[in-house]
Write a protein that binds this DNA or RNA. Structure first.
Lengths: 231, 231
DNA sequence: ACCTGAACACCGTTCAAGT
DNA sequence: ACCTGAACACCGTTCAAGT
């Protein structure tokens, strides 16, 4: 449409001379985070990947926290948008939980970002989405805030748990293999604890290696929803 | 009793020549954390406070994470011990929640430590304590693990939320004053959001400034317990 | 065995100097 | 206006050298 001055193709490489964009920076940051893990995201590494100087980034991003919040917001927005299409509030809450779980599975670094700064906009998105579903669920007005916070805290708690496992066994090849290895390690450590003081933990350790994270997460949400509906 | 060789008092200053202890280091670290906040805890600052070199600390503590885990464990142990004295499982869970809340209020840095490393021993203590109460509550065997994790996630989620508020308004004079200021700031920010996309959050913002954190926290636990009992 | 403290290998962020 | 990249003010951790 706007390509009036078509000219020859090789001399018109305008893209390269255009200034950096915040969106470009966030995209590059997402690449580093997902491919090389949380610790690999450095302003120096980011600058190298974008073929620029580290100081240049500060013209479009005010700090590292700002950058991480923007990256997180991009991904959480997809989850809340998807959850808004469900028919019933129960399904909405479950879709939200499932969505958060999956996005954390794919991008474990989000867990730390969310729990490090719970007032960033991505969290507002989640509270708004949770709250609307809770209202639709028929929870009485005064209890709505408590209820939304409870669900929110549950999700953030799980988030940090996922983040930490990803930190223990950073990124890499076979995720399911690593997850089982991680759980077995933890189970072994729990089994070695002093028996009389740790009856419950030792009992849980036996089931731990072959339990399903996702199922557990959704199970937790169901417990919460059950509690909510009795209000 | 063991003071056979009483001698004179001034020449017998054995204490100063005794080597450092991990307990001493943890105590000094707690002092810095509580008085000056999370960011003030540095191996250099810690060494200065203990009148030693920074490298000396590594003879008793393997890393900063190790140090923080030890400090956290000391405080969480007090909470779980206290919760174990309650009569009913409902009261036990509530005591646990209250205890965690209060300890986070006093030592906000614990929130980040707990959520940064959810497999440290302090967390095992919490899971064990939660699990025993859940068992006593009559939750059927297979659901116990899910239930315990749900409560755990809820508590850790709240923990990180507290930690972040403490980070926003680091340590200092009048805690209640600061808390109200923090909440008002957040409420104002929420009220400024686009109305049609944020009905719930904007509605909540009105109640936010004068709501009681502690009440909200215990309310959340009650929702969970209600859900648990229906299992 | 325990301590010292300089040195190492990093960070996020700033800022004079360039275009 | 935007970029460059050296410099600043830190970190956690290590390690030769001391006692």
């Amino acid at each position: 449409m706007s390509s009036h001055a078509g000219m020859s193709l090789e001399t018109r490489t305008e893209r390269r001379t255009e200034p950096l964009t915040k969106a470009q920076i966030v995209e590059a940051a997402l690449g580093i985070l997902d491919q090389e893990g949380e610790n690999a995201l450095t302003f120096r590494a980011l600058a190298t990947r974008l073929a620029t100087g580290s100081g240049a980034l500060y013209h479009h991003v005010s700090s590292k926290d700002d950058l991480l919040a923007a990256a997180t917001d991009d991904l959480i927005a997809q989850v809340t948008r998807q959850a808004a299409t469900e028919a019933t509030p129960e399904d909405g809450l479950r879709a939200l939980a499932r969505g958060v779980f999956d996005v954390l599975e794919l991008h474990p670094w989000i867990g730390s970002v969310l729990s490090r700064n719970p007032w960033q906009y991505a969290v507002v998105r989640l509270i708004e989405s949770i709250g609307q579903n809770i209202q639709a669920l028929g929870v009485p007005g005064p209890a709505q805030f408590n209820a939304a916070t409870a669900v929110m805290s549950f999700i953030l708690g799980l988030a940090s748990q996922h983040a930490s496992r990803a930190r223990l066994f950073p990124c890499g090849a076979d995720q399911t293999m690593l997850r089982e290895a991680a759980l077995s390690t933890i189970a072994a450590r729990w089994m070695a604890l002093e028996p009389s003081e740790h009856p419950f933990v030792r009992q849980v350790a036996e089931i731990l290696p072959d339990h399903d994270d996702r199922e557990q997460f959704l199970g937790g949400i169901d417990i919460l929803v059950r509690g909510l509906k009795s209000l």
